[in-house]
Design a protein around this nucleic acid. Structure first.
Length: 517
RNA sequence: GGGCCUGUAGCUCAGCCAGGUAGAGCAUCUGGCUUUUAACCAGGUGGUCAUGGGUUCGAAUCCCAUCAGGCCCGCCA
């Protein structure tokens, strides 16, 4: 059984289920967050498929403070450190806040992946007073909460610690205030900026529960019944350990079902850290990977497995693997024994509906070659028709599929593909020095090209024939062709490549090369 | 120090949650194919399932211990 179904089977039948996910939008949202969201979505879908009543929610922790000036920020942001992300201006100026700047494009990406959660912003929940009863309760039970956290996490909290971080009314920081006295409904505090004052906790948005208390509070507030979280939250004494106790003892709410997931790493680079520049943002990942393939990556791996994402050649393999499973799903190819839960994985990989028939498949490697010959849509169609990979007419779904894959592979080529697979078809004959025997070869090959059946295999074989007639190594023959076409010594498999270029183009180029001295 | 995960063929991994004769891809070898951005076709070799114990008629699978590796342990996936 697929892991998502196993987890959904834990959920009680006589209950409304709320599957929660979310993050702190403090910077570009990276691909680890993708795993969390996709894991939650998988369980949500599995719950629905089981006939349970369920919804998926996404909580943006935009009331958390800015921790430091990240490398991608201008230095002026120093003055915002310690303020809630929702209260800091947007770095680019076109979003409502710092938090929205990073959040909005990520939420758009989710749409493309077929994830449509109810979105909650912590800043709103606080300002609208939805946290008020929990704040009051937490303050009343400060001592008990303090004891739980100290016992379980083995750290000491300050003497006058309260489970509430006040936002200074003067400098707007969350991190620089110290409570002096709590007497319902007000807390007196002092701030490092010199300000002293008091806040009324009945008024929303005057402060924030610390994470270890905030988390269990929101379980109850939003009636969360399932939540995936990373293993950082699951270490001994960490927020899950304290959270589940606080949830039960303080708020009287059973902690949600959960799954701890492993992190995604970049192949060869170890864990990703935005601060070290080794992170790839979620948006980038989605721009280079077709959405169904990105879902596939998450769905085929159990949450407990760590994933090495290879943005280089490995990405091509991943797409090929997806395509292969797709063919098997539609019965076009035989199932291999290693394919586990294939049907379910394929279904869960679909952003929206499962296709009714096998979608158009053009090998991704091949597409990577085609888009380097032409970026023009009609040009691409012409190439595919010439090589017999599509017929005269494409239906709407196949066209859509093709367009998307072209977009993704193009982005990948621009940003992530290794140099060795990149080339540029030269518009006119490059300035190359050809030896006499190479010209003999071109002459021989021109004859073949003029009359041969226009397909990859014949064109490829023609090189051997022309080489032997010209008395040269086939290797030199191939190299000669790449020189006059790409101005390089190597290139894509020649037969396919020439077949795509078309007879007129190839004949012309050969003739030009022969004319040049 | 603590926690979680992982350990299956030379390599990458599936199979473990519902115990019933050990699987795939790559590599290698053989045969075919006159070397092309990780070539193709057919076939073969290859594993006391990390180690030790336990439960069981039966264990890669469940339980316990040990060893090794990875990651995590203020906030953050």
């Amino acid at each position: 059984m697929h892991w998502a179904d196993v987890l959904a089977n834990e959920l009680e039948e006589d209950r409304e289920h709320v599957i929660a996910t979310g993050i702190t939008p403090s910077g570009p949202i990276h691909i680890g967050n993708m795993r969390e969201v996709l894991t939650a979505d998988a369980i949500y879908r599995a719950a629905i498929d089981r006939g349970l009543s369920a919804k998926l929610i996404y909580i943006a922790d935009d009331f958390d403070q800015l921790r430091k000036v990240y490398p991608f920020l201008p230095r002026e942001y120093e003055r915002y450190v310690g303020m809630p992300l929702s209260e800091i201006p947007c770095p680019c100026g076109s979003h409502g806040s710092y938090a929205d700047h990073f959040l909005e494009s990520f939420l758009d990406s989710l749409k493309e992946l077929g994830i449509n959660p109810e979105v909650y912003r912590a800043s709103k929940l606080y300002k609208e007073g939805r946290y008020n009863e929990f704040i009051q309760l937490a303050l009343e039970k400060s001592d008990e909460i303090k004891r739980i956290i100290e016992d379980i996490s083995k750290r000491d909290l300050p003497k006058n610690w309260l489970p509430f971080n006040i936002i200074c009314e003067n400098c707007k920081r969350l991190t620089t205030t110290q409570p002096l006295l709590y007497e319902y409904p007000t807390i007196e505090y002092r701030c490092r900026c010199g300000y002293e004052g008091e806040v009324d906790i009945r008024k929303g948005g005057v402060g924030k529960l610390p994470w270890r208390v905030d988390w269990p509070a929101r379980w109850k507030m939003l009636k969360v019944t399932f939540e995936p979280f990373g293993k950082d939250h699951a270490a001994a004494g960490s927020s899950w350990d304290t959270g589940k106790v606080i949830s039960e003892k303080i708020f009287g709410y059973p902690p949600p079902h959960h799954i701890v997931y492993e992190f995604i790493q970049l192949k060869g680079k170890g864990a990703m850290h935005s601060s070290k520049g080794t992170a790839i943002s979620a948006e980038e990942m989605l721009k280079m990977t077709p959405p169904e393939v990105l879902r596939f990556l998450i769905m085929k791996n159990k949450p407990s497995k760590h994933i090495d994402f290879d943005p280089g050649l490995g990405l091509l393999d991943l797409v090929d693997e997806y395509d292969e499973e797709e063919r098997v799903y539609f019965g076009v190819e035989e199932e291999k024994r290693g394919m586990k839960d294939l049907k379910r994985i394929y279904e869960l990989s679909q952003p929206y509906k499962v296709p009714k028939k096998l979608p158009l498949q053009i090998p991704y490697r091949h597409l990577a070659t085609i888009v380097q010959i032409t970026k023009d849509w009609n040009g691409i169609l012409e190439i595919l028709r010439r090589t017999g990979q599509i017929g005269e007419h494409l239906d709407g779904e196949d066209e859509e599929r093709l367009r998307r894959r072209i977009e993704h592979v193009t982005y990948w080529l621009e940003r992530f593909a290794p140099d060795k697979i990149k080339f540029r078809l030269q518009d006119s004959l490059p300035d190359v020095d050809l030896r006499d025997e190479q010209k003999d070869f071109l002459k021989e090959y021109l004859n073949i090209v003029k009359s041969v059946d226009w397909n990859a295999e014949s064109l490829h074989e023609g090189v051997y024939e022309a080489s032997s007639r010209a008395g040269i190594d086939p290797k030199t023959g191939f190299r000669t062709m790449y020189q006059i076409l790409l101005n390089k010594d190597h290139g894509p498999r020649l037969g396919y490549f020439l077949a795509m270029l078309g007879r007129d183009f190839v004949v012309n180029r050969l003739e030009e090369a022969l004319k040049a001295v």
